[in-house]
Design a protein around this nucleic acid. Structure first.
Lengths: 208, 208
DNA sequence: CGGGTAACCGTACCGTGAGTACAGTTATGC
DNA sequence: GCATAACTGTACTCACGGTACGGTTACCCG
């Protein structure tokens, strides 16, 4: 990594932490460059403006999220070859991961962007949109494998069900952030898990 | 309503529309007072600062939300006396309501506040927290009536299940906003409804 | 109908933060 | 060792939140 890339990465890391903690609008360039040990000119050498920074941040975030989700659901697949069990394990691992996040868990950058729309240009919004559709695709493919093997107890659209995973995470983050209760997000993921079980898991007397 | 209250209300209405569309930080006092036809002095006569405005906005929002939710779930109760059926009808009505929102559906002020935290003081954040707990209470009481009559197929915590209603709405709003697809939110509410059915509805061959 | 107060207006000002301009400087990699 | 990348420094502009404060208008109440 060249020196330039290194500085750029440092800016992004500092920015991300602050944005997730305080929001995008409330994070000033000045405080970022102070912490990064550079000057304003240095900052604008790397990023045209705050918008470009947001875009880079979203891209970086997307990649990291992908790695985390890949990891969780791949481990699920390793532990159980059945697609349903694999997904359920993945959700449980995800819930555990979210429960053990270090202090003040971060929100989601996508949601942050959502509620700051006018600060960003069309390109950023389009990127935001693509991320959500990417998540849909990710979860849909897992759900398709499940639906192929197990009939669902209730007719559901797989795209919508895939969105439900994202929506649960986003919703759980909002509530967790609003209340300051970090257990809400993992609890919501486990409720989603329970729904998936009721939907696809073959009959038993009563599930517990 | 006195002239002062009228102006205050006008400010709040203009502010709310803009905040839901563009976010809190991106809505300037100047543009609000221009649209309201008053001066800066006039604005600061009514509100100490932007924070006080946010607080008033949240309170107003809470009341309106309450009216809407009361209406929807009371109508559910009127249409079916069984608490489960009443809740299911309420959810369906809510989904319909959300599907038919006029253009660019607004986000949620609570979520907006969540992702702008540092802009607000402790009082606003505390208010935000209380709103979420109020929602929990609201849905919990409906769910308790259901759980009393119907055994659940799967052990669930009623507080968490109550939160799931809020989380579904918040999550659906985020996704809808990010993608620009207004159908996501109602679809998510219907999925939640399907979960409630699977959880509590007595056995039939297959639910459709 | 007079007066007091609520509901503003006008003007001038400050601090902060985004962003621009542009010339100069240091460091790095080939 | 030299070109270029990676900055620094200084000096602005503009928008926005917020303050200060004196003056003005409108409304309600006795």
């Amino acid at each position: 990594m060249s020196k330039g890339e290194e500085t750029r990465e440092r800016i992004l890391a500092i920015m991300e932490e602050s944005v997730l903690q305080k929001g995008f609008g409330a994070t000033s360039i000045e405080e970022v460059i102070t912490e990064a040990g550079i000057t304003k000119s240095g900052f604008f050498y790397h990023f045209q403006n705050k918008n470009a920074l947001a875009k880079a941040l979203l891209l970086r975030y997307l990649e990291r999220e992908d790695v985390i989700l890949d990891d969780v659901f791949n481990r699920g697949r390793d532990l159980a070859e059945d697609p349903l069990q694999a997904f359920l394990v993945g959700l449980k691992l995800l819930a555990e991961l979210m429960a053990n996040l270090p202090q003040e868990h971060p929100g989601c950058l996508v949601a942050t962007c959502c509620y700051q729309e006018s600060l960003f240009d069309r390109e950023v919004r389009e990127l935001n949109r693509r991320i959500v559709l990417h998540w849909r695709q990710r979860f849909r493919s897992l759900l398709e494998a499940i639906a192929e093997r197990y009939p669902s107890r209730c007719e559901v659209n797989l795209d919508e069900l895939a969105d439900m995973v994202s929506a649960t995470i986003e919703g759980g983050l909002v509530l967790g952030r609003a209340t300051g209760d970090r257990q809400i997000l993992p609890a919501q993921i486990l409720l989603l898990r329970s729904y998936i079980r009721l939907l696809f898991e073959p009959d038993r007397a009563t599930v517990h």
